[in-house]
């Protein structure tokens, strides 16, 4: 247990030292939040109502899809994996440590947005903060598991950038966080429903979200978790 906890704390520290991860977990999402917050709230005062939710979803999606897989690709595709195997470190710890570290970092990023948005842009704070953060945690876990899956399956950082963008950009454009999804052509609007970000926006901006809205997010999480365990088992076997 001591070794595991040390590994988790170490991974959190290593993520802070990793420029690629810092950029995707903190710098770009928070800069984007400040930029969008300034512009959107001056153009459309109604944007203040959903600024916290939309910018948090943006930060989490970006961090989880573009940042979370990086340490996993380094660990599972290279010689580090062998070093862990012969050195007595269980391979699953890499994925689990990375998951926990990413959760903490992205939660901090979300908290920063939650605190700054009302002060800087007079953004509307969610009515029930406990419910908000509870639902946010579900979305966060799902997004990190998607990012983790990318990290387990993709074999190089250059390929990872491509696959991550293929997921991230449509998620950003079709989920409704940049502009209302109902302004999109119907086909694209429906396509947006395959991304957890679309459902998260519905859930986080509604005072009484329906249970059915959670199902796609939960299903995606279960599917990625199953595939992730399968892939880890294969890595062990190989």
């Amino acid at each position: 247990m001591k070794a595991f906890l040390y590994g988790v704390a170490l991974q959190w520290k290593l993520d802070l030292r990793n420029k690629g991860i810092l950029v995707t977990y903190y710098f770009v999402p928070l800069l984007f939040f400040l930029f969008i917050g300034t512009i959107f709230t001056s153009i459309n005062p109604l944007a203040k109502d959903t600024l916290i939710q939309s910018m948090t979803i943006f930060a989490i999606t970006m961090g989880a899809f573009l940042g979370t897989p990086i340490p996993l690709v380094e660990l599972y595709s290279g010689d580090i994996r062998k070093a862990y195997q012969v050195g007595g470190i269980p391979l699953w710890t890499g994925a689990v440590n990375n998951f926990i570290s990413a959760f903490v970092h992205l939660f901090i990023s979300s908290l920063i947005i939650y605190v700054i948005a009302p002060l800087a842009f007079d953004a509307k704070v969610p009515e029930n903060p406990y419910q908000y953060f509870g639902f946010l945690a579900i979305f966060l876990i799902t997004c990190i598991s998607i990012g983790g899956l990318l990290g387990l399956f993709v074999k190089s950082v250059s390929k990872l950038t491509m696959y991550s963008q293929i997921l991230f950009l449509p998620s950003l454009m079709l989920s409704g966080i940049m502009f209302p999804a109902d302004m999109l052509p119907k086909a694209l609007e429906y396509a947006g429903y395959i991304f957890p970000a679309t459902w998260a926006l519905k859930i986080l901006t509604s005072p009484n979200p329906e249970f059915l809205w959670f199902l796609p997010i939960i299903l995606i999480f279960v599917a990625t978790l199953t595939l992730g365990i399968y892939k880890l088992a294969r890595i062990y076997r190989d």
């Binding site: 290279g78 580090i80 012969v86």
Partner: peptide, 13 residues
Amino acid sequence: GVQLQSSSLLENI
């Protein structure tokens, strides 16, 4: 105890 030919660790550890 093993020292591998091409061993590596996370680069910022």
